[in-house]
Amino acid sequence: MILTFFYHLGRFVNLLKLMIARPENGGMYWKETMRQMNDIGIGSLIIVCMIALFIGAVSAVQIAYQLGGQIVPMYYTGYIVRDMTIIEMAPTLTCLVLAGKVGSNIAAEIGGMRQKEQIDALEIMGVNTAAYLVFPKIIAALFVVPLLVAIAAFVAIIGGYLAVVPTGMITESEYVFGLRSFFVPYNITIMFVKAVVFGVILTSIPAYQGYFVGGGSMELGQANMNAVVYSNITILFFDFIITLMMT
């Protein structure tokens, strides 16, 4: 078990090392990065917004219900929703969802290319496949995932507002006052650090799983599953590490 872990870790690091090379043609890499930005960013925007909206709504209702207005003032609902969203919900939940959607897509795409000998074809042409197939995805995620996370945070706060203000659980001024209270700009830094690290994880692990896939459809399915499971576990592990280090 431990040996297997280190075998995969070594191969994963090797794959990342292979990516660091001068591109055969910068323009082609740029084009591929743009394509990936579109796939990861625009392609995931709706699902990310929907999930953020509901997470914000449920959080706000739950918090408002728990506070009950007895000891802690109700405006704390806005404050807690904001901080919970920025520090934890937006980066972690968004990236867990992206690991499922984008991660499985990357593993399937690269794995399919491996099985259909398209990666061999690129190698024969003289293309550095690790660099061409993996690097643009990681770079795209580095830019796009933080953007998605920021949008998710914003939408979650709106979701919280829509859930508790129109329903009369708290007043608009209470919610907005809460949002404006005790704001610590450093929390935004934590959010973006998490987003960047998770972005690398949710693209590189699935790419590794797809790149080394063998056999047929069973193996491809297994690689897809591993991509999502290992990405999720790694995201949660690094969530803990970053939280520990930055708070």
């Binding site: 259909k116 000998e117 398209q118 061999d120 074809a121 024969i124 003289g126």
Partner: peptide, 9 residues
């Protein structure tokens, strides 16, 4: 080198 693959790739 040029290569034609079995499944065309």
């Amino acid at each position: 080198i040029g290569m034609l693959f079995q499944g065309s790739a």
